[in-house]
């Protein structure tokens, strides 16, 4: 564990908690893409199956359980409890156009052709594009609530910090995982446009459609 990875995990946890609290407190999921949240729940489910097979550390296990729990709680709030506030007209990104290519690629490019490894690879590739429905929704509505922009900022920063973590691990441990690194670079690049707006526009972020 290094400072970049810990900071990244805490930023990721902050993003997940911010979103869950925002929906719960305002009792509304307006401006939130339910499709992105479904993709994140799928990412955590396919990536953390090793909860059943291997124990790495208490920290690792606790964080995985929290991530999975919050992801499904968020999906539940969006599609069940606060369904009436769900912005279905703008949340129209075809996620099958993400899942199918990512699924195919995870069969073609992976470290090991075993079920757990292919599912892990699928989750890594999927996570790199999972935010697209959310960015698409914001570009369609033309604006995002301030709290949503903070959520997106933390979510974007988490994988950017992981990039530094991988540089650190390569330099000090000689460890590197090309699949995670390439997907992490793609994921962070997708946020760049948003980062620019978040920093320059301060409060109201309007991504030009």
């Amino acid at each position: 564990m290094n400072i970049f990875r810990l900071a990244g995990d805490l930023s990721h946890l902050a993003a997940i908690i911010i979103l869950l609290l925002k929906i719960w407190k305002t009792r509304s999921c307006a401006g939130i893409s339910g499709k992105s949240q479904i993709l994140f729940a799928l990412v955590f489910t396919t990536r953390y199956l090793d909860l059943l097979t291997s124990f790495i550390s208490l920290y690792n296990t606790c964080m995985k359980i929290i991530y999975i729990g919050c992801a499904y709680a968020t999906v539940h709030l969006i599609y069940m409890k606060f369904k009436a506030t769900y912005d279905g007209n703008h949340d129209t990104f075809r996620i099958e156009f993400l899942i199918v290519p990512v699924g195919g690629l995870s069969f073609l490019v992976n470290h090991d052709f075993s079920p757990l490894e292919i599912l892990w690879t699928f989750s890594i590739y999927l996570e790199s594009v999972a935010i697209l429905p959310q960015l698409f929704l914001i570009s369609k509505t033309g604006e995002a609530e301030t709290i949503t922009t903070h959520y997106l900022f933390c979510l974007g920063v988490y994988r950017a910090l992981y990039l530094f973590n991988w540089i650190w691990r390569f330099y000090f441990e000689g460890f590197f995982d090309m699949i995670a690194i390439v997907a992490g670079v793609v994921q962070t690049i997708l946020y760049c446009d948003f980062f620019y707006l978040y920093v320059t526009k301060g409060e109201k972020v309007a991504i030009p459609s």
Binding site: Y67, D112, Y162, F175
Partner: peptide, 10 residues
């Protein structure tokens, strides 16, 4: 490839 298969990151 075994070190890559033990994924210790979240």
């Amino acid at each position: 490839a075994d070190e890559a298969s033990t994924h210790d990151e979240l």
